[in-house]
Design a protein around this nucleic acid. Structure first.
Lengths: 342, 342
DNA sequence: CAACGTGATGACAACGTTGTCATAGAACAA
DNA sequence: TTGTTCTATGACAACGTTGTCATCACGTTG
């Protein structure tokens, strides 16, 4: 059977049932004004013929689309960011809407093509999802209000964006260690050019201030060099440097779980046990890493699923006035890589 | 501006340009029989008004859909399996088609709903993508030939499936080690209930036979207990057992990169250096792990991207008769976790 | 009895496209 | 000249729905 071809139509059902097309339509849509017997009879034919309404026809008639568009930039690098897609799907399911998805590979030309494509399908709204927290210039599209940025924000703030609260995440990381009595704390960060780095640093400072502790900048080293997408890891070198210090830190705040993973191995080489000799706290909560390390990694989770969900929810409420930047909190996930200092 | 609402139509362009709807249609579709001057003039209005053809109307008129459906079971666990989606998107891009995506969360009820949804949108074909290599019972749908299974195969072999060649992958793992002179080789496998485990084992045996070596079953231990989705890792215990053997293996074949990652840490604890004292080879090539371990992990890659691409390509060729199970090879990715024995 | 409300149903148009066929004028051959 | 072919264009129908309005058979009210 050829797909995309003709399927059972209202007309066919109507003929079988001996009623008008309109009556069948009424029943399909659950309209009130139909005789009970007629309804039962038609219903029978409906199921027997396995009728499924044609969305294209519906959309054309009503002008209302039941499809949303999701544009992603680059999927390859941060695997769990697909949770944004899952979150969006989850919310869409509740709305009985569906998702048209496309990937721009970060090419502006391709992106323009996709905006056209979404227009061609008359999607009801678009989510632009970036694979890491950053600014994005959406530019001028025909979609106006019906665009939400997920995990990124509009460069000109003319669209709403939903992003992780990296400042609060950094705060959680530091506070957790401070509460456990650590004062000599190291930091291995991500690339300076990434928004998250700056924000998390601010959160970490805030936690230190709040605890009446002072942060020693010498204890903060970058774990990467180069530029985004082409960065090179120098985590091992940085960690080694920190851990060979005369007054070596009792804990290290890691830019992400991957950094933590690398430090686990450095610590092992130096004969330092985690968490006895060194406490580590990660960021992202990539379960593939955080739950497989030994001991399991205490970390702060990126709320990707929530970001996706809320993006759709915001698209639903078109009433929302103005363009906001919404921060989704990053929860602490406590496992076994941090000890309490006596 | 409301989305999903009315956009510029052929009629509007036709009025502005002072020609008939049909003429504009001809130009949009690049039909030959149009006067050069007319074409130029209409083209101008087309771009000025930013006309984009309405897919719903096109589809209704022609009966041909430009959308494919992709149904996934559970995305959460194996993050890189989204490469299947990327691969599909990549192929679809070339065909100027788009992708409607939905997630069944593994619930049969939801799955049935999604088949209906795909029918409602009259998609031109459906890819059912599983997140790990397994059998799936598609059952009876209205889609007939236009279903391809990706990373899984139909329980009744009534649909074509594209799966990784796990047997060959296992063969590659073993052969690589054997070629490097290893003979005392351990194995830490995944759950027995997973197809991949059985297939890879067969491949490993084949490599041993080919090399005239004999595989000692005592050296093969399962790294997990329990059932799929709820498995519990006993990789550390298994690895420790192997490595404390009087005649400890010089190399271990790992069920996946995650297993390898856990063994790195066990080895460190036992004072064994990789690859000097122990060679390891993984499976999957999750870059997040394989490239961050130190030394970087030699492994066999799951060809998820290819699987996605080929699934779409197969859907394109409707001519393909019969239902096949296509095996996509798993290439060896050589890094630094295996040494040559002298 | 007439006028009226009510409940159930159907006829018809329209949404934006494209395939089919018709038409008008120009170019060409007899 | 007349008839024929060709080129460029347009009129119209149809795809499958649903909103609007009309219709018809009731039963109820004055």
């Amino acid at each position: 059977m050829r797909l995309g071809g003709r399927l059972v139509t209202l007309k066919q059902v109507a003929e079988k049932a001996g009623v008008s097309i309109k009556t069948v339509s009424r029943i399909v849509n659950g309209d009130a004004a139909v005789n009970v017997e007629t309804r039962a009879s038609v219903q029978k034919h409906l199921t027997r013929l396995n009728y499924v309404p044609n969305q294209a026809a519906r959309q054309m008639r009503s002008g209302a689309s039941s499809v949303y568009g999701l544009m992603t930039d680059v999927v390859a690098t941060t695997p769990y960011s697909v949770d944004i897609v899952r979150g969006a799907q989850s919310a869409l399911k509740d709305l009985h809407q569906t998702l048209l998805i496309a990937n721009s590979d970060g090419e502006p030309e391709r992106e323009a093509e996709l905006w056209r494509m979404f227009r061609a399908h008359r999607v009801a709204g678009v989510i632009y999802a970036a694979m890491f927290h950053r600014a994005h210039d959406v530019g001028k599209t025909a979609f106006g209000e019906s665009i939400i940025l997920a995990n990124c924000y509009d460069a000109h703030d003319s669209h709403s964006g939903i992003v992780p609260d990296d400042e609060q995440g950094g705060y959680e990381q530091a506070r957790h260690l401070l509460r456990h009595g650590h004062r000599n704390i190291g930091c291995i960060t991500l690339l300076e050019s990434i928004d998250a780095t700056r924000l998390r640093r601010a959160g970490i400072r805030r936690a230190f201030n709040e605890a009446g502790a002072s942060f020693n900048s010498d204890m903060e080293l970058s774990g990467y060099t180069g530029r985004v997408w082409q960065e090179e890891s120098i985590v091992r070198e940085a960690a080694t440097a920190l851990l060979k210090l005369a007054k070596r830190p009792t804990a290290i705040i890691c830019g992400n779980d991957n950094v933590a993973m690398q430090i686990y191995s450095v610590a092992a080489e130096l004969g330092l046990a985690i968490p006895q000799d060194l406490s580590l706290i990660g960021f992202d909560d990539l379960k593939l890493i955080s739950e497989s390390l030994y001991p399991k990694l205490t970390t702060v989770a990126l709320p990707y699923f929530d970001i996706g969900r809320r993006a759709v929810e915001m698209l639903g409420n078109t009433r929302t006035s103005g363009h906001q930047r919404i921060l989704v909190p990053c929860p602490l996930v406590e496992r076994h890589s941090c000890r309490t200092l006596v």
